[in-house]
Design a protein around this nucleic acid. Structure first.
Lengths: 159, 159
DNA sequence: CTTGACCTTGGATTCAACTCCAAGGTTATA
DNA sequence: TATAACCTTGGAGTTGAATCCAAGGTCAAG
């Protein structure tokens, strides 16, 4: 049995957060003391762990509420239902990774195209690429040249 | 040259969003018509594409503003500075990818552990994994078994 | 018997990124 | 010339997930 502060401390959340979960039906303490204090049972703590784990994996509180309702009502749901929820999230994450990889490539290309030297950025390839109305990144040492460095080795014109 | 509605239509954003970007300095139309209508150039459209791509992979508008604003101040930056900013973002993106990959693995493991069939979720591995206070996911068909399916092929006990 | 750390409540605020609204001006078309 | 479909502005509302606040009750220690 924990009071709100104890539970909060133990799981490194704010008491406000627990009250928020209470108010929104995600985690209602099993008991109240005479004086109205929230008293959380071991089961409540378990439920909190469930919530925190699910949250860490990237479920929204709405998702979690859904998962919890399945949890309470297990026998009326099929595995497929539960797996469905997870798989949707998974697809989500995969899409995000793909986008990030695309963006990483862009940034990498920008970074690689820039000499990175002490020259004024006036003719910086990166800025030109950002300004330009094409997605081309031109090889920088056509502009202001200094010794062919490792910066520009993998520079390639890209249309 | 596009009016706000045209540009919005073309990129499937709301006109309100474009006005929002204008107000917040992310994307100010290059021109205004006599009557005050926003007129966007092809460069503006390019800038919008950049914003949307950056947004899609999870850059905040603040991040994006930072990336875009270096442009205004070019001559006060050295190539090294600009490259530095890009490289910071690159590291950012890489960290994000890593985090998401971790995330993905968790979800994948959850998904793989579940048979996904029409059986009652009573013994669903996903729920058990989320319930458990360890991060272990047990192989589901130790619980309720049906033919070894592709769902459980890559199921492995993980402690 | 008073301090100080805890707890209660309802309600307000935050933050990002929109999204909507009202009241009015502009423009292409019938 | 009138109608509809555009556009303008400032400002208010929305969402999710907290986080903070004020005013006050509770409880163990000194």
């Amino acid at each position: 049995m924990y009071r709100i502060g104890e539970l909060a401390n133990h799981y490194e959340v704010k008491t406000d957060t627990l009250r928020f979960y209470d108010k929104h039906g995600l985690l209602k303490p099993s008991f109240r003391s005479e004086s109205g204090y929230r008293i959380y049972s071991e089961d409540d703590a378990e439920r909190l762990r469930f919530i925190l784990r699910a949250k860490a994996i990237g479920f929204s509180l709405t998702d979690i509420a859904e998962l919890l309702s399945i949890e309470l009502d297990k026998s009326n749901w099929a595995c497929a239902d539960v797996k469905g929820v997870v798989d949707i999230k998974l697809a989500d994450v995969e899409a995000k990774i793909e986008e990030l990889n695309y963006f990483k490539t862009s940034l990498q290309r920008l970074s690689d195209a820039c000499c990175g030297g002490p020259e004024s950025a006036e003719h910086c390839s990166i800025l030109e690429a950002l300004e330009s109305n094409t997605s081309a990144i031109k090889c920088e040492n056509q502009k202001h040249q200094h010794e062919q460095s490792h910066y520009t080795k993998n520079c390639q014109t890209k249309g």
